[in-house]
């Protein structure tokens, strides 16, 4: 069962983030969504599930290419936003459930595409969620994980995770690329195909749509400013006059669930 206090932190953060996050330009970036849809190679007969769907951006992006798309999330405010976004996008073949992604309320093999975006770093047990995703994915279906990945240098990875946890207290840990890939291996999937992009913005824009504890925003800006000099966060950061620009490295990992015979 999930850790209750972690669940409370998720609910608190995502209820507040529901509007700023689901409308922020870097998150809805049309090119990134196109890359994700391409990685899944959707067919018109496919049923899709988005695990921890948040504001429903991925569900609505896939809806025109599949028979049906379902989003599941823990936060009611996100599901309200998701439903509204679907209406605005003019897609009708979508449904929503509220639930815990560590115990998905779906039958085995229920979906042809099972996707999760920007969620693994919020889970206390990413592998448990991945197991559930694979369970509900039919043989021949595709499992797709999209997330930020931390530096392969453990000290830099730890420092970036510290900054992210200050920015969003519900953050658990950004995995390294090798760890994200290992989720596929550990659940019996073949090695995933990988594609990459970056989420770029200025640190104050990111803070403007985040809800750190009072005073922590200053610490975060200091960490990013220092990283522009010494790369302590292990992600691209540069200073342009007063601006501190960063790029979060994102991986799209996709694998087909091989038919078990």
């Amino acid at each position: 069962m999930s850790d209750i206090s972690h669940q409370d932190r998720i609910l608190d953060q995502f209820s507040r983030q529901a509007m700023p996050f689901s409308t922020a330009a870097p998150i809805t970036d049309a090119n990134a969504l196109r890359m994700i849809v391409e990685a899944a190679a959707p067919k018109p007969s496919d049923r899709l599930l988005d695990v921890a769907c948040g504001g429903g951006i991925v569900v609505s992006a896939f809806a025109p290419y599949v028979e049906h798309a379902t989003g599941i999330d823990m936060t009611p405010a996100m599901l309200d936003r998701a439903r509204q976004h679907a209406t605005e996008s003019g897609v009708a073949n979508v449904t929503w459930d509220r639930g815990d992604v560590t115990a998905l309320p779906y039958a085995d093999d229920a979906f042809d595409i099972v996707v999760t975006r920007f969620s693994m770093h919020h889970f206390l047990e990413p592998l448990g969620v991945m197991r559930e995703m694979v369970r509900v994915c039919a043989p021949g279906g595709r499992v797709i994980v999209i997330d930020m990945h931390a530096s392969d240098d453990p000290a830099k990875a730890a420092e970036w995770n510290r900054a992210e946890k200050l920015r969003d207290p519900s953050h658990v840990r950004c995995l390294m690329l090798g760890e994200l890939k290992a989720l596929f291996h550990s659940t019996g999937l073949p090695a995933p195909r990988a594609s990459f992009y970056e989420l770029r913005d200025e640190i104050r824009n990111l803070l403007a749509r985040s809800f750190p504890n009072p005073g922590d925003d200053v610490k975060i800006i200091e960490m990013y400013a220092a990283s522009a000099e010494d790369d302590r966060l292990g992600i691209p950061v540069r200073r342009v006059n007063e601006r501190i620009e960063y790029a979060f490295p994102i991986a799209i990992l996709a694998a087909e669930r091989v038919s078990s015979t």
Binding site: T95, G99, D100, P105, Y106
Partner: peptide, 15 residues
């Protein structure tokens, strides 16, 4: 409730 959703839903505890 959408009938398409009902088809695949199970109890999260017992499946």
């Amino acid at each position: 409730i959408d009938p398409r959703l009902l088809e695949v839903l199970v109890c999260p505890l017992t499946k």
